[in-house]
Amino acid sequence: MSIQTFGDWLYATPISTTFRETTWIIPTVQSLHILAIAVVVGSALVSELRLAGVLATDESPARVVRRYLPWIWSALVVLLASGMLLIVAEPARTLGNTVFWAKMALVLLAFLATLLLRRPLLRDEARPAAKTVAWLLLVVWIAVIFCGRFIAYT
């Protein structure tokens, strides 16, 4: 089954039709999606600026990361759930859209970088974190936001 036929099938399902026809569902889910992005952005900003040596340098990196990493994980769960509802409601807008897939690739990259390079900081206080990675991660999250908005225009 190709993505196109899957999208067509999804579009025709009763749940997809209900989501589209109930006027408040899509704006509400999109608003929750933006709130969750704000949680990721705020948490990533403070953590990554600490690791880049800009903010709260008198606190240990592990302490700062320990505070914000759980928020990033929770917000990502909300983003995944709300994002999937939006795909169900409007499959063609997302699944057939190059910008959407670029966004997914960037989210996966940010997720893996956080998992593999940030989580180990919790256990090892002395582990050095590359400043470049911290700046790059912030740039990736910003790119995710741009892609998200551009999905509506492509």
Binding site: I34, L35, I37, A38, V39, V40, V41, G42, S43, L45, V46, I142, I145, F146, G148, R149, F150, A152, Y153
Partner: peptide, 22 residues
């Protein structure tokens, strides 16, 4: 122009809300 301004607007709002939330 419009989508770029909107993206910057969303980025700014997530920064406002994300930092004020903390």
């Amino acid at each position: 122009a419009f989508p770029v301004l909107e993206s910057l607007h969303v980025l700014a709002i997530t920064l406002v809300f994300g930092t004020i939330l903390i």
